[in-house]
Design a binder for these strands. Structure first.
Lengths: 107, 107
DNA sequence: GCCTCTCCTATCGCTTATCGATATGAGAGT
DNA sequence: ACTCTCATATCGATAAGCGATAGGAGAGGC
């Protein structure tokens, strides 16, 4: 049983949302996404880390090295102000698209 | 950083849905998608035709040449049986994902 | 007849996101 | 020592969508 693939474009949104609930290191983001989507989304490292780097590059996240709960070296990410704005923008965008498609399917 | 209009993966779903309401030629599909999404989605030819070809290749659509309402040569597409199954599958999949993300954003 | 507008299909090149596999390192447990 | 797990990272492949562009053919004005 393959886990459902992501819709492209939703990963950023989920990462932003996950981090809006507090700073996390990379794998923590992956876990929180699994939690808040009730296991519907499984994000592998090959998707996660490039996305985090891209988003930090875009100025939406900032990072610093620290220690995880298991005393492992880990990079902690948190939202910047532009990141919060981006979350709002993407959440709105998602809502619009989601309603449009739901409406189309109902018709 | 360009915003893509569509969420990747939703184009197939919209095309399948559009054709489930009756056969259409290419540009007709584009128009019907605009209608049923209340103008939320504009599908240009550079997205539309490759998608139609891909989906015909996949066996979801069949096509035949005919004449449009304006007496123009046009290729009419209709759903095959596998295409209808695919529509059901993708619609279900969309609903699941959509609910999962909506839930995640609410939290 | 001729010109232009619109309709209709088609393709090329480019960008970008995601995924599977793989690599590396270090603390934890035995 | 050895292995398991945590944690970050990167590479190559795949694929979708988009802008631009092209070309053919009927419609309608003149």
């Amino acid at each position: 049983m393959k886990k459902t693939n992501l819709l492209q474009g939703t990963l950023d949104l989920l990462i932003l949302k996950a981090l809006s609930m507090g700073p996390l290191h990379g794998l923590g983001v992956s876990l929180r996404i699994r939690q808040i989507t009730n296991g519907a989304f499984e994000v592998g490292p090959g998707s996660l880390f490039p996305a985090l780097h891209r988003m930090e590059e875009a100025g939406w996240l900032s990072s610093e090295w620290g220690e995880s709960e298991n005393n492992r070296r880990a990079k902690f990410y948190q939202l910047t102000k532009p990141g919060r704005r981006q979350l709002e923008t993407e959440a709105k965008h998602w809502t619009l698209i989601s309603l449009a498609i739901a409406g189309a399917l109902k018709a």
